[in-house]
Each structure stands twice: as C-alpha cells, then as structure tokens.
C-alpha cells in the first residue's frame, strides 16, 4: 500500500447528501480515495454514481442543495473542506486544475479563448496581460493546437469540439497544477479525438510530473493511461486496484460485469452484448445492505442486511474490494 506521506490527495470517509422533500438522501457514502504524487488514478462508474460530485466537492463547488455531510479531503496535507475561501481560491486553478466534461458549454461563449487562458495566469501567477498572452500561446502549442498566435483571438464557437477540449485542458494546465482532475473529458468527442486527447494527457503528465484523476464510465478507454483504478457504484468504492491487476483479476461482481460488457473483437459475430441487469438505486432508496446486491449474481443473505467493507484481498494490500462473496471465496481458498 502506498505510504501516506506520498499522497497528494487523500479523501477519507467523504459523504455527500442531497436535500429532498423527504429529507436528506445520501449520494456518496463514506468514500475513501487517495492519489499519490505523480500517480494517475482512474475513477470508473456509471452515470449518477457520484464520480463528478465527489470531485466537485473537493473544490467545494457542489450545486445548491447538495453538500458534504462528513469526511475530510487532504490536499498536500491541508484539509480542503476547512480552508478559508481565500485559500481555496488559490488552490482552485492554481494547485488543482479541472477539465470539464462538455467542451461545448464549459467555455465562456463571449470571451476570446486567449483571454480565458490568460485569466488564471493573471489571477494566480500575477502575470501582466502581455506575459499571460505569450504563455497562452505557449499553452495552446503544448496541447497541439495549430497556429496558436491566431487561435488566441478566436471565440469558442469558432473551434471544433476536439479543439475546445484541448483549450479546456490548456486552461486546466495553465498554472502547472500539482493535480489535474479530468471529468469525462472525452465523452463529448468522437473516438479518434478521444485517443488523441488521451495521448496528449499522457505526454503532458510525463512532461509536467503532475498527478491526474481521470473520471470516466469507459473502462477500456483508460487502460493505457492510468496506474490505478477505483470503481464506484452508487456512491461507494467497490473495488480499488492497480490497473493491470484489475483487468487480469477483477474481483467485485460489478467490476466483472463492467468488464464483461466491453465488446471484444474475438466475440462471435452477432453475439449479444453483455449487460448488467437492473438499474442503480436512486439516492434515498438505497438498499439496506450492499448497494449492488439487488443486481448481483452472487448475492447472499448477508449482502441484503450488511454493508461490506473495502478489504484488502491481495497480500500486498494494493487490491481491495468490498464484497462478501469475494471474502468468502478467499476464506475458502
């Protein structure tokens, strides 16, 4: 297991609630997460499982009516939840860069992209307009936008989706953050562009030595990018493993279901795509025991009454899963 002092981001027992008419409902339930220095973490889960909210909560950017009920989030040994707004603003954009899901709506439509790139540089790094402009050109070149000298004058609507996502990444990287959080940055893009963006981030990560958290619902996409994967289901961590280990030896039935539903070239033609039956529970209607139990092929009685803990299942302790069936199988072995 990674030593605590090597952790750049350390989230403990984070719980997020939403106010509903029938009282608060839990969306994210006691999540533990950590990212080492220079590590790339993939956070995987289906829509609505709380991936994005977890990341937004780190920056205290949760929408109305959604709040952190308990838990800590240490970044560089400082608790993000307890920071003053002034300190937090320095961390946002300065130490933690954010790349959002939708490049079509995440850029200010009435501001030239050069100005949007320059804004954090002026604000966090105290650069002059001129310096910021030069740095903006450099950044656009870094993310592979051709003719950056002219492009800084462009408005977002004049760029294609892939170009806009590159601009978003450039903005996220502007102040050379220690951590880049990318929230499904390739979902809105077509497949060839997705691969380009992944390669881009891979290259930049090595060049800048930063940590990356990559949120996605696409397990296959991030196989070559991340070091470690955390699988979320209904606001809980169900499995946490090094990427190769996870693909070779998935333990949690949900992870297995996810991996099985990736189509393979070796599949028989016209064979049915595997899928996991049922839908995730709504917040406020979580089952009493394991949240995955109603959809789980291995569910036992205990699964419906008790919540499994995230337990190490390998000797090194780097592979952890929250499942009674896995525990039982290990004990039997």
């Amino acid at each position: 297991m990674m030593k605590t002092e090597n952790r750049l981001l350390d989230v403990k027992d984070l719980t997020i609630e939403i106010d509903t008419r029938s009282g608060p409902a839990t969306i994210v339930d006691s999540i533990d997460l950590h990212v080492g220095k220079g590590e790339t973490l993939g956070v995987v889960g289906e829509s609505g499982c709380g991936k994005s909210l977890t990341m937004l909560s780190l920056m205290r950017l949760l929408p109305n009516k959604i709040r952190v009920a308990k838990g800590e989030a240490h970044f560089d040994d400082r608790d993000l939840q307890k920071m003053s707004n002034r300190e937090l603003r320095k961390v946002r954009g300065g130490d933690i860069g954010f790349v959002f899901q939708d490049p079509m709506t995440s850029l200010n439509p009435v501001m030239r992209i050069g100005d949007q790139l320059a804004e954090p540089l002026i604000y966090h790094r105290g650069m002059s307009r001129k310096q910021a402009r030069e740095r903006a050109i450099e950044l656009l070149r870094l993310v592979g936008i051709p003719g950056p000298e002219e492009r800084i004058q462009a408005y977002p609507h004049e760029l294609s989706g892939g170009m806009r996502q590159r601009v978003m990444i450039a903005i996220g990287l502007a102040c050379e953050p220690k951590l880049l959080i990318a929230d499904e940055p390739t979902t809105a893009l077509d497949v060839t562009i997705q691969a380009q963006i992944i390669d881009l981030v891979k290259g930049l990560r090595e060049k800048l030595g930063m940590s990356v958290v990559w949120i996605t619902h696409d397990l296959a996409l991030i196989a070559g990018l991340v070091d470690r994967v955390v699988v979320l289901y209904a606001g809980t961590v169900v499995e946490d493993a090094p990427v190769d280990e996870l693909y070779a030896n998935p333990r949690h039935p949900y992870t297995r279901g996810l991996l099985a539903s990736i189509p393979k070239l070796s599949d028989a033609p016209a064979s049915r795509l595997n899928s996991i039956g049922g839908t995730p529970p709504e917040p406020g209607r979580r089952p009493q025991g394991c949240p995955f139990a109603p959809r789980c092929p291995l569910a036992m009685d205990i699964c419906r009454t008790h919540v499994p803990k995230l337990e190490p299942i390998s000797a090194a302790g780097s592979h952890r899963a929250a499942c009674f069936a896995v525990e039982k199988a290990r004990e039997a072995a």
Binding site: M59, L61, G93, G94, F98, F100, N108, P120, Y123, I171
Partner: peptide, 8 residues
C-alpha cells in the same frame, strides 16, 4: 462552474 474551478 469552470470559472469557479479556476479560482477566479
């Protein structure tokens, strides 16, 4: 939200 995430 993106602007807020930039710390502006």
């Amino acid at each position: 939200t993106a602007a807020q995430a930039l710390g502006l």
